[in-house]
Amino acid sequence: MSKHAREYFRFNVSHRIEHILLLLTFTVLTVTGIPQKYASAAWASGAIGLMGGIELTRQIHHVAAVLLMLAAIYHGGAVTYRVFVKRVRLTMMPGLQDVKDGFQAMGYNVGLVKTPPRMGRYNFGEKIEYWAVIWGTVIMVITGFMLWNPIATTKFLPGQAIPAAKAAHGAEAVLAALSIITWHAYHVHIKWFNRSMFTGSLTHEQMEEEHALELEEIEAGVEESPIPPAVMRRRLLVFYPAAIVISVTLLAAVYWFVTLEETAITTIPRQDAPVFVPITPTPEGGL
């Protein structure tokens, strides 16, 4: 019983900040983006109206996009730190085992397989979701860049790339939103509410079902050995300058992304046809 009451630490503050940033930006991007894709539908234009019109909606979308890119940069830095400084195991790396786990889980669900898969720190479901976010973000940033900077893009790519980017941006958004509504919502909200992303820890029961292998390791006392301070210092000495340079470069890239081009003029083009040009003095008299 006492064993079952134990909470298993899972996500540190950095993880949780990343998640909240993603949660917020993803939600804002979806809420402001999806109605733009379906703008001619009444519900969509209604939603855009509620958000203050299409101009404001686009601005909010842009701000959220920038925040998402910043979150992505932060995530990149955090992952780099974990991988290169802390040298954690690459538990998010997908492998053949994940495919097997997926099929075994499904087989177990329908009763074809007797035992459920015993999965590590990140199970196949979480890996799908993580890599979907990575894939989606990359697609959205690239296509978003193209839509934000169509003139710069068409200097290098054919013009058709712009509408193609628009199609991809919208379709990818739908895919992402539907994935969140189905896969994510089911696994961490409907099936049970997995609070670990906010509290940092998971119950024994959830650990057992979703991360049995990791639980086993924790129970067996397999802890990652602490890094000697000297080694740590040496690694940080490399990490910090590199991280600063890369981060600054990426931040500059974001700034460049946002300010690269003035796509269109901001005034209204006027048709300057002379309006009143009578052919002759209007015929007078007995007409």
């Binding site: 169509p150 003139i151 068409t154 200097k155 790519l157 054919p158 013009g159 058709q160 790339a161 712009i162 509408p163 081009e261 003035e262 796509t263 269109a264 003029i265």
Partner: peptide, 11 residues
């Protein structure tokens, strides 16, 4: 779009 170049119109 005063800065537009050749490919742009195909957008």
């Amino acid at each position: 779009h005063p800065d537009a170049t050749a490919n742009f119109s195909d957008a």
